[in-house]
């Protein structure tokens, strides 16, 4: 029962997010808007109810299951890449490698810099 109540809260926030998206033509999914609303609501309330915690934990623990039907799609869309395999796969592989490298290095150096300036203060 308690988990279902938490699930209801999640669904209501999702619907609220969807409603905002449709009314204000925001190009972000209702789920993301619901997530933003959820964090702000929790910040105002200052605590998470047990029902909400158990429902969110249950859903997050099966996140991989939820995205699987989408991932399988990759194997059934080979024709979309026709003739451009090399360019597309190089762009995705090398491009992602470089962007992960950039993110990690940037983040690492900025964290170090801000830690040092705090130390000087």
């Amino acid at each position: 029962m308690s988990m279902l109540r938490g699930f209801l809260i999640l669904v209501l926030f999702f619907l609220l997010g969807e409603a905002l998206r449709v009314v204000f033509l925001i190009p972000v999914s209702g789920g993301v808007l619901g997530m933003i609303l959820m964090t702000f609501t929790l910040m105002l309330r200052g605590r998470v109810s047990d029902a909400l915690a158990s429902a969110s934990q249950a859903l997050i623990s099966v996140l991989v299951l939820l995205i699987m039907p989408g991932v399988v799609g990759v194997f059934f869309m080979a024709s979309q890449f026709s003739g451009q395999w090399l360019a597309v796969s190089a762009a995705l592989l090398l491009g992602t490698f470089l962007s992960v490298l950039t993110t990690l290095l940037l983040m690492k150096s900025v964290v170090r810099l801000s830690a040092r300036s705090e130390g000087n203060d």
Binding site: L10, F14, G34, A53, S56
Partner: peptide, 22 residues
Amino acid sequence: FWITVLLGPATVALGIPLYQQI
């Protein structure tokens, strides 16, 4: 679709760990 439709509330659920890591 009956599985992927749950991604909506699951995305909302991500707000809870985010709040806990505030």
